Computed example of a mutant assay.
Amino acid sequence: MINVKAGSVVFEHVRKTFGSFTAIPDLSITIEPGTLVTLLGPSGCGKTTTLRMLAGLEHPTSGRILIGGKDVTMLPANERDVSMVFQSYALFPHMSAVENVAYGLLSSGLKKNEAKEKAEEGLKLVGLGGMGHRLPAELSGGQQQRVAVARALVLEPQVLLLDEPLSNLDARLRRRVRTEIRELQQRLGFTAVYVTHDQDEALAVSDRIVVMKDGQIAQSGAPRELYETPASSFIADFMGEANVIPCEVIGLEGSSAVIRVGSIEHRVPTRQPRSGSAKLAVRPGAIQIGASGGTGLPGRVLHSAYLGGHVEYEVETEVGTLFIIDHDVEHSLAAASDVTLGFKNRGIALIDA
């Protein structure tokens, strides 16, 4: 029986330098037990360094790291109650799947029969029951990744660390395996820290996303919160495409603001209520496109591209060129068409207000 021990994770003012370079200036994060938190960001943002410090592969220059309430800041990797799933799977090619899963158990002193039994249970847990005799070369990429997950889980860690676990898989397989990882995490209730640069992956698997930039937290929150109410231009653009356009805040109503863009007036959520000039993040699917002459923002289609399930437009307007996704493929518009634009109720938020 595999007994999961979900532990909390706390970073307290953690700083990490490499010589004169500061990778992490001052990082504080709390991860609740039983949640899956994704560290997301572009290359060089500090997410992998953060994960390596949690794993004990790097030590902070200052600050504290706690796992399950215990200070592990300077403990070596083998004395921390964590397991890691690597990007490269890191399976022994000469060992069968069950031998790979049992390896860590044997190294920790478990008897051979007990280790094999627990390894087989781990393989069943990830949907590979009956396949323990196969070598890694006889398994698909997705199956190899599931072996790696099973190997980590049978050690019953307080925290499971996943470092770009799906980057070696093709797009279709990535979607399937990320769903399997999320379902497994929810079923067993373990704490997981997941590192990726893929926004769709983060949105699909996370309880909470921590977006990092230059070693700091740019924004943290639930997937829907980050996508629908980004706090900055960086978040708006990084969490899926967004049109960032100037607007005027002409009224405030609680946590909402009434804004004006050209001749359009619209109510949108805001984090920092304040009248005057501001910026608006508008998702491509949040713009309605219609025939010219209506009420709204006039524009002209510069480019039109049919992509099967939707049409992509670039439309020139008085506030700049807007990228629009429209699912009305039956009435697509050609380049040079005059149009009128409006805003839908979701997918629009004030930033830098």
Rank of each mutant, 00 (worst) to 15 (best):
V4I: 14
V258I: 04
A204E: 01
R64C: 01
S275H: 10
N243G: 03
I351N: 02
A257Q: 08
R146Y: 03
A97P: 13
G41A: 14
G56P: 15
M212G: 07
L173N: 06
E114P: 13
T50M: 09
G44W: 10
Q216L: 08
G254N: 11
K111S: 12
I181G: 00
V244R: 01
T321W: 05
A353W: 02
A218K: 09
M212L: 11
G342L: 00
H303G: 03
T17W: 05
H94R: 14
T17N: 14
A353K: 01
V210G: 08
A222H: 04
L173P: 04
E138H: 03
G189F: 07
L169P: 01
S62A: 12
S337I: 01
E58T: 15
V329G: 11
P223A: 00
E32M: 04
S232V: 03
K111P: 07
G189S: 00
G262Q: 07
S292N: 07
H133L: 05
P269A: 03
L27N: 11
K47N: 08
K124C: 09
I259E: 01
V205P: 02
T191V: 12
R146H: 12
E241I: 07
I245M: 04
A55T: 14
R172N: 12
F11T: 02
E58L: 14
T179V: 11
E201Q: 13
L162I: 06
R15A: 12
V82D: 09
R283A: 04
L54P: 08
A336V: 04
I259N: 06
S107W: 03
P93Q: 12
Y194D: 13
K116N: 13
S256A: 06
T50V: 08
G142L: 06
A137F: 06
L280C: 07
R172D: 00
A150C: 12
P230M: 09
N113E: 15
D170E: 14
G221I: 03
R267W: 01
S277G: 06
L105M: 11
E120I: 00
L135V: 12
G129V: 13
I324G: 05
L66D: 10
Q185W: 09
S233V: 08
S263G: 01
R175A: 02
M239F: 05
L36W: 03
S255P: 03
R80C: 03
L36A: 10
G215C: 02
V315T: 05
E318Q: 11
G276V: 09
G221F: 04
Y306Q: 07
E314Q: 12
S96P: 03
N3V: 08
L184M: 09
V101Q: 07
D81R: 01
G240Y: 00
R151K: 15
L27I: 02
I29G: 06
R182Y: 05
G56M: 15
F323E: 05
G132S: 15
